[in-house]
Design a protein around this nucleic acid. Sequence first.
DNA 1: TTGACAGATGACTGACCGGTCAGTTATTAT
DNA 2: ATAATAACTGACCGGTCAGTCATCTGTCAA
Lengths: 278, 278
Amino acid sequence: MSDKKILIIEKASELFAKNGFDATSVQEITDACGISKGSFYLSFKSKESLLFSIFEYFSSKLIERIGSIYQMEIGPRERFEQFFVIQFEEIARYSDFILMQMREQTNPINEDMLGLMNDMRRKTYEAQESLLLNLYGEDIKEHMTDLVVILGGIVKGYIEIIVFNKGSLDYMGLAHYIVERIDSIVNGLSKPFLTTELLAGNGMCLGNQSVTTEELLNEIKLVKKEIADEDLLISLEVIEQELSITNYRKPVISGMLSNFKNNEQTEQLVRKLKKFLN
Amino acid sequence: MSDKKILIIEKASELFAKNGFDATSVQEITDACGISKGSFYLSFKSKESLLFSIFEYFSSKLIERIGSIYQMEIGPRERFEQFFVIQFEEIARYSDFILMQMREQTNPINEDMLGLMNDMRRKTYEAQESLLLNLYGEDIKEHMTDLVVILGGIVKGYIEIIVFNKGSLDYMGLAHYIVERIDSIVNGLSKPFLTTELLAGNGMCLGNQSVTTEELLNEIKLVKKEIADEDLLISLEVIEQELSITNYRKPVISGMLSNFKNNEQTEQLVRKLKKFLN
DNA sequence: TTGACAGATGACTGACCGGTCAGTTATTAT
DNA sequence: ATAATAACTGACCGGTCAGTCATCTGTCAA
């Protein structure tokens, strides 16, 4: 990722968070970056693809940090607290951009963005689940769905306060406080309210959703519009043709996929294709 | 409120909730209503004023219903549950439009809308506070801010589920479940985390904010653009002149205010002026 | 010094949107 | 039946914005 790209991402995310996506023009973004409008289109295919990159940039950071707490040598309670601290820090740092996107119904990119959002949600959910089980034992399994909703709600509630009082809150103290509240809730649990299916139907895709070839073909068509590299385009076309025939040859596809190493724009698609092949 | 206006409000709020405010053109709204674009401007001064009317329409309903639970002859616990049920019902009914607005940073009307939003938030906060105090006693007073944030978060969390599973959830059961969780939390409370000031600074304006004559004059100027009725315009101008002099005569203003009975567009302003006179 | 080329620029284009208004149709009054 | 009024229509306008492209600039090898 070039410096220019990162500069644009940082500035644009600030503006989007402040004024919203639609209300921020490309001109404003480039003015803030001190570059020309045309130069913007050297780094990003479109305003839409910038949004996608921003989300990718931030969500990958969040996912990475959440993954890192398992490397720490601390107890389950401290790990749980750390989980909250990371969410507070990242979301306060990147302003409410992520929140804005998670909330705003008007996501310009639907097909592509949804994958990333689900990825992030699933990662967060999985982390929450394992942390809760480690801390409170297997007994709470049937309450998992409710706990996740309640926990998510509480975090969102406090994040709103954090956003308005940027940096002036004691995240560690807050994390400790929240875990204490969860203690109380877990102690008082009786009969669950939500069933797992309700959450699953909630667009959260917690399990492994199966991907159809048609969906993949659609996504390939979209990604083709986003990339300029000739070699990658050829590879995509080969994959496209291969997927179109009934008995597609797996080695051909997986071979082609090796051409996409270290390319951010196709990362999502490649992940899906790999999952599809297995 | 005419049938046409209500039709537009209902259809537009659906579209806004689905696609966002900016992404929904007036043409789309009028197409959905089966009327012409020009006809839209017979009912509403602008797209912006439609948004204001929608918010007014829904928030007044919510506030009214929350007020009604105090007339019911039920215990404090049932009343608390009823408070949640109303929120679930109204917000599920009117889709996530209200949520969208509460979240979206890009509210087109800032000056006017903010008043309505604060009104609603204050009403909700006051209700929560009195319900909590009635149910758990005065001891929880110092925890009020935290409880309000936690409670609001939990409600929002479940509302997201409700929106995706429209109508298929047992609101009464959910309300009961949530109150049980609050029981646990209240039982386990130790030291509060948030102070009242933090919430107050959060744009929530829980106390009585004082209004300056300048702010009022600004708002009058804005409202003048919105209304067409000649008599009301004259009344507004008289109020404007009166407020501009240092020793304004209260009776003159309150007299003029009587001309605004049953006018929706000036409702907010009139309320503020009345508060200012007292 | 030159020429060639990648990177950067900003004037320009076409699409779209909020809002207007001259003209049409429906309704009511005389 | 006719006039008067109200309700409605959709072409049109000014303005904005995403995206394009002819042009420029700095660099560096020959």
